[in-house]
Write a protein that binds this DNA or RNA. Structure first.
Lengths: 112, 112
DNA sequence: AGCCATGGGCAACCAAAGGTTGCGCAAAGC
DNA sequence: GCTTTGCGCAACCTTTGGTTGCCCATGGCT
């Protein structure tokens, strides 16, 4: 199931970082750290993780490193989220239908 | 955003456990551990986590503890997954539209 | 050119979380 | 009544998210 992608977006700080990058188009470790409750180093580590799984890409600009979201990879991650969600949703629906069917049957038994 | 729910389903082992519980209706720490690459104790810890956030409930049966998924809470979790996914999806779409608009504009500039 | 402010990488360290082994206990089964 | 067996608890290890401290390089200012 490619758990790397999941675990990458599993961390709340990293999710917020992706949000910030999407909102601003791009950002550096320092600029992101200003908007997050963690230090620049922590952000840098997260960026390294996101970079490793391809969710972000870095372009060096002078002494700065501008990170931006890789759209294709994020789309992949979103698809995985949707997939798991859909699977569970389907099962929940099936359970619900089953429960309703049983209830109807028990009512029918009482009536009969 | 209720990160507890997210972090609960963020772990791949716990996701698989939820899958197994949904598939089988219910299960014990021992029965789940048989189908997982981890020890019973690890499973028990995960069950404790899932129990704490309300994703599963335990019903003692003799010396066994049968766990089953709380449908309402799982539905909540699925909704959160969908929400984050939808948010990113929307942003990705907006970016794509913007990129296309810019491309059209540059072509128009060349033509004019 | 020279200096200092600033962005960033590296290393050491800490705490929490996922995982393991080992133990002990209580309920089921013979 | 004795043995299995399912669980819970405790100690320990490793990874990971986070911190502080230090140093290097680049860029702006004078």
């Amino acid at each position: 199931m490619n758990d790397d992608l999941w675990s990458a977006i599993g961390d709340p700080t990293r999710r917020t970082m992706i949000d910030l990058l999407l909102a601003g188009g791009s950002g550096t470790a320092t600029s992101l750290a200003e908007k997050l409750p963690v230090t620049r180093q922590a952000v840098a580590k997260h960026l390294a993780v996101l970079d490793r799984v391809g969710l972000v890409t870095a372009k060096p600009a002078g002494r700065e490193r501008h990170y931006q979201v890789d759209e294709a990879q994020l789309a992949k991650a979103v698809a995985q989220l949707a997939s798991v969600g859909a699977s569970w949703d389907a099962r929940l629906r099936r359970i619900k239908r089953l429960a309703e069917a049983i209830e109807r049957k028990s009512k029918g038994d009482q009536d009969g």
